[in-house]
Design a protein around this nucleic acid. Structure first.
Length: 759
DNA sequence: CTAGGGTTAG
C-alpha cells in the first residue's frame, strides 16, 4: 500500500483529500483503522465538514484507539465538545482502552467538569503524563479556582513552555495583570504563544499601547499574533488602527485567515460606512475567502450596522445550521437599530435558546427607542424566567429606562436589584446611575454617586453636567467642567452643550459667553445654545446677529430658540422671521405653527391666528404630541392625544366633560388653563383629539382619593400647564389634590397651591 | 498530543 501512503503525503487540499478517500475506498480499505485515522487527521487539518469526517469514522469496522483519538481531536478542533464526550462514552462501551493521548483532549472538552475525570485519569495511571498534567492545570486556570492551577504548577519538577503559557493566560483571564507579568519575566524561555498571550492580555485591559509594545517586541509573529493585535484594536473601537494594521499585515505578505477577516469586518461595522462595506464584500469575493460561521455572522452584523437590512437578513437566512445564538442576537439588534421593534420582538419570541445577550438586546432595543416601560416590562419578564441572570449590561438599560421615565422609586428598585444580586458596576454602570438620579430630580444622589466613583470617564462628567443643566444649576456645571479639566479630561462637544445649556437656564450670560469663546471649533449645536442663551436674557437682536454670523447653515433648534424667546418678549418681528425659516426647514412640525399662533393670540391679533391655522390646514400639518404617563397602583398608564384605548377611557371623557361644565357654571373662562381649554374646538376641527396631559390628569383625578398623590411621570409641562386648572378643580371638588412631578409635590387645596420639596 | 487570536447586547 505504499502508493496510497504516497498519495496521503500529497493531501494539501480538500480536493486531494477526496481523491485520497476515493483511492482508499477503491482498495476497500475504508474499514481499516489505520486508513481511517489517517483520513481523519487530514480532515482535522483541512477543516472538513463534521458529517463527512464522521462518515469516514463510521466506516471503520472496529475503530482502534488511534481512530478514536483522531476523531476526538477532530471534534475538539471544531469546538464540538458534546460530541467529544459522546464519542468517549462510545469508546468505553466498545472496550477500547483510552491512552494518554485521549485525556488532554477529553479534559479540554469537559471543561469545568473535568475534575470528575481527575479520578479516572489517576486510575488509568496517566497523571504522570506531562500533557495530561498540562490539560488538568489548564482547566483550573480557565475555570478557576486559579490557585489550584498554581498549586499544580508549583509542584511540577520540570515545566514545559505550555505550562507557563497556561498559567499566564489563566491569570489574564481572571484579570490578574500583576501575576501574568511576573510569570512572563520569570520564565526561562518564551515562544510566540507566550508573546501573543501578553498582547491579548493587555488588549483585554484596554491598554492597547502596552499591547502594541509587546507586539512590536515579539521576536517572531504568526497569523495568530497578528490576529490578537488586530482583534484588540477591533474590540476596543480602534477601527482606524485595526485597518491600518491589516494593511501592514498584507504588505508583509502575512496570509490572513478567517479570524483576521472577522476582526477587519467588525472594524468596518464600527465605521457604519456602506461604501466601505461593499468594497470589503467585493474584496472577499475576489480573494475567494472561505467564509466560516464567524465570518458570516460578522458580515451579517456589518450589513446591519451599515444600514443594509436586506443583506443582513439574507445572510441570516443562508446561515442554516450555523444560525446560532449570536446570529439571532445580531439580527434582533439589526431590527431594533432601525426602530422595528415588532420584528425584533417576533424574532426574539421565535428564538429557540435565548441567552443574556438576547434579553439585553431586546431590553436595550426598547430603551433606545423611547419605549422605557416596555424595557422594564421585558426586564421583569427576564427575572421571572428563573434561569436568566441579568448582568451589568441589562442593568444599564434598565436604570437608564427608569431615568427616562423619571420615576425614582423604579430607579431605586433597579439599584436594589443590583445590590441584592451583587452585580458589580463599571464606569458606564455608574454613569447610568448618575443619569437616572439626574432625570429623577435627585441631584444630591447624582453628585454623591459621581463622587464615590473610583475612576471616571468623560461621559461621567458630561452626564452630571447635563444634569446640572437640566436643573438650571449653571455654577455647578461650570465648576464641574473646571474640575474635569483639572483631572486631565478634555471637554468634548457634549460637555460644552451641557455647560452652555446650564448657563442658559440660569441666565448666566457672561459666563456662557466666556465658555462659548473658549470652544476652539464650535459646531451648530453650540451656536444654538448660545442663541438660546441670548434669547433668554432678552438680547434678541444680538441673537439674530449671531445667527447671521454663523459659519454653517442653522438648524431648526437655532430658529426654535429665537421663536420661543420672541414669543416671551413679544418681539413679533423676530418671531415672524424665525417662524418663516422654521416653516422652510421643517414644514411638517406643528409646534412652530402653534408657537407663532400663540404669539399672535397673546397680542390679540386673532386675524393672524386664523391665518396661521389656515396655513396649517393647507399644508396638511397635523398637531402632534408625546405620551403622558401616570402611575397608579404600581402600574404605569400612558396616554396620547385623543387616546381612547385606555380601559377607563369612557370614565375619563365623562369626567372631563363634567369638569368643563362645572367650570363654565362657576364662571371660569376656557382659555385660562390648558386642561380644559378648547377641547371642543380641537375636536371640531378634527385636527387633534384631547391632549394627552388632560387625559392623564383626569385619570389621576379619577383614581386618586383626597390626600393621595397623582404622579405624573413624563411631560413636566403637564404640571406646569395644569397648575391653574388643578387649583380650580381643588376648589370645585372641595378636596385636596396632590400632584407629584419629578421631584416635587404640588399640593392643591381650596384654589391655591403650595409646593413641597421632596427628599 | 500542549499553550495564544474570532461573531452579538451597553
Amino acid at each position: 500500500m505504499s502508493h496510497l501512503n504516497a498519495i496521503a503525503l500529497r493531501v494539501t487540499q480538500i480536493k486531494h483529500l477526496s481523491q485520497f478517500h476515493a483511492q482508499v475506498i477503491h482498495h476497500s480499505l475504508q474499514h481499516h483503522s489505520y486508513w481511517v485515522s489517517l483520513l481523519i487527521s487530514h480532515c482535522t487539518r483541512l477543516r472538513a465538514p463534521p458529517f463527512y469526517t464522521r462518515l469516514i469514522f463510521n466506516s471503520a469496522q472496529q475503530p482502534n484507539v488511534y481512530a478514536f483519538t483522531n476523531m476526538l481531536k477532530f471534534y475538539s478542533h471544531v469546538g464540538a465538545h458534546d460530541d467529544v464526550i459522546a464519542l468517549f462514552d462510545c469508546m468505553r462501551v466498545s472496550g477500547v482502552i483510552p491512552d494518554a493521548f485521549v485525556f488532554p483532549v477529553l479534559i479540554k472538552s469537559w471543561g469545568k467538569a473535568a475534575i470528575v475525570f481527575h479520578g479516572h485519569v489517576l486510575k488509568m495511571g496517566h497523571q504522570g503524563d506531562r500533557y495530561v498534567r498540562n490539560a488538568v492545570m489548564d482547566v483550573y486556570a480557565k475555570h478557576g479556582p486559579i490557585c489550584f492551577a498554581r498549586k499544580l504548577f508549583d509542584e511540577m519538577s520540570e515545566r514545559m513552555v505550555a505550562d507557563w503559557n497556561s498559567m499566564i493566560s489563566g491569570y489574564w483571564r481572571w484579570g490578574n495583570k500583576v501575576e501574568a507579568d511576573k510569570l512572563f519575566t520569570l520564565m526561562p524561555e518564551r515562544n510566540v504563544v507566550t508573546w501573543t498571550a501578553m498582547v491579548s492580555g493587555y488588549s483585554k485591559t484596554r491598554d492597547l499601547v502596552t499591547a502594541k509594545r509587546y507586539f512590536d517586541q515579539m521576536p517572531e509573529k504568526n497569523v495568530v499574533s497578528w490576529n490578537a493585535m488586530l482583534s484588540g484594536y477591533a474590540q476596543n473601537g480602534f477601527a482606524e488602527e485595526a485597518i491600518e494594521l491589516f494593511n501592514e499585515m498584507v504588505n508583509r505578505r502575512v496570509q490572513p485567515d478567517e479570524t483576521t477577516w472577522v476582526a477587519v469586518i467588525s472594524s468596518c461595522s464600527d465605521r457604519a460606512d456602506p461604501n466601505l462595506a461593499n468594497s470589503l464584500v467585493k474584496m472577499l469575493n475576489q480573494k475567494n475567502v472561505r467564509l466560516n460561521s464567524f465570518v458570516k455572522i460578522a458580515l451579517l452584523d456589518m450589513h446591519a450596522k451599515c444600514g443594509n437590512l436586506a443583506a443582513a437578513k439574507k445572510v441570516f437566512e443562508e446561515l442554516g445550521a450555523f444560525r446560532n445564538a449570536v446570529a439571532w442576537n445580531a439580527m434582533i439588534s439589526a431590527y431594533t437599530r432601525v426602530g422595528d421593534l415588532s420584528s425584533a420582538r417576533e424574532l426574539f419570541d421565535r428564538m429557540p435558546r435565548k441567552n443574556v445577550v438576547s434579553w439585553n438586546s431586546m431590553i436595550a432595543g426598547y430603551a433606545q427607542n423611547g419605549q422605557s416601560t416596555m424595557a422594564i416590562e421585558a426586564f421583569k419578564e427576564m427575572i421571572r424566567s428563573k434561569d436568566m441572570k441579568p448582568d451589568e449590561v441589562t442593568m444599564i438599560s434598565v436604570i437608564s429606562a427608569c431615568g427616562h421615565l423619571g420615576v425614582l422609586e423604579l430607579g431605586n428598585w433597579a439599584l436594589n436589584f443590583v445590590n441584592e444580586n451583587q452585580i458589580s458596576l463599571s464606569i458606564s454602570g455608574y454613569n447610568s446611575v448618575i443619569f437616572m438620579y439626574s432625570k429623577c430630580g435627585s441631584m444630591k444622589d447624582a453628585k454623591r454617586v459621581f463622587e464615590e466613583m473610583e475612576t471616571r470617564d468623560v461621559i461621567s462628567f458630561n452626564t452630571l453636567i447635563t444634569g446640572f443643566a437640566a436643573h438650571g444649576d449653571g455654577f455647578s456645571a461650570i465648576d464641574l467642567m473646571r474640575k474635569m479639566k483639572g483631572d486631565g479630561f478634555q471637554p468634548d462637544r457634549i460637555t460644552y452643550i451641557g455647560v452652555l445649556t446650564a448657563c442658559s437656564h440660569a441666565g448666566m450670560l457672561e459666563e456662557g459667553q466666556r465658555v462659548f469663546e473658549s470652544i476652539s471649533n464650535p459646531d451648530v449645536d453650540h451656536y444654538a445654545c448660545m442663541i438660546d442663551l441670548l434669547g433668554r436674557v432678552g438680547k434678541l437682536d444680538e441673537a439674530k446677529r449671531l445667527i447671521k454670523k454663523m459659519p454653517m447653515v442653522p438648524h431648526a433648534g437655532v430658529y426654535g430658540s429665537l421663536l420661543n424667546a420672541s414669543r416671551i418678549r413679544k418681539r413679533i418681528d423676530l418671531g415672524e422671521f424665525a417662524a418663516r425659516e422654521l416653516f422652510k426647514i421643517e414644514p411638517e412640525n406643528s409646534g412652530n405653527y402653534v408657537l407663532l399662533s400663540n404669539m399672535y393670540a397673546s397680542m390679540g391679533r386673532w386675524g393672524d391666528v386664523e391665518r396661521i391655522r389656515g396655513e396649517m390646514r393647507l399644508g396638511g400639518v397635523k398637531k402632534t404630541t408625546g405620551w403622558s404617563w401616570v402611575e397608579f397602583g404600581g402600574k404605569l398608564h400612558k396616554f396620547i392625544v385623543g387616546d381612547k384605548s385606555h380601559e377607563r377611557s369612557n370614565d375619563i371623557y365623562k369626567l372631563l366633560k363634567e369638569l368643563r361644565e362645572k367650570m363654565r357654571k362657576a364662571g371660569y373662562t376656557a382659555d385660562k388653563d390648558s386642561v380644559l381649554r378648547d377641547v371642543e374646538e380641537e375636536e371640531k376641527e378634527e385636527m387633534v383629539g384631547t391632549h394627552s396631559e388632560k387625559l392623564a390628569v383626569c385619570f389621576g383625578l379619577l383614581v386618586s382619593e383626597a390626600g393621595t398623590s397623582i404622579r405624573i411621570m413624563k411631560n413636566l409641562r403637564v404640571c406646569w400647564d395644569c397648575h391653574e386648572a388643578m387649583k380650580m378643580i381643588s376648589k370645585l371638588e372641595g378636596r385636596e389634590i396632590i400632584v407629584r412631578d419629578n421631584n416635587r409635590f404640588h399640593c392643591f387645596n381650596n384654589g391655591s397651591c403650595s409646593c413641597m420639596d421632596h427628599w
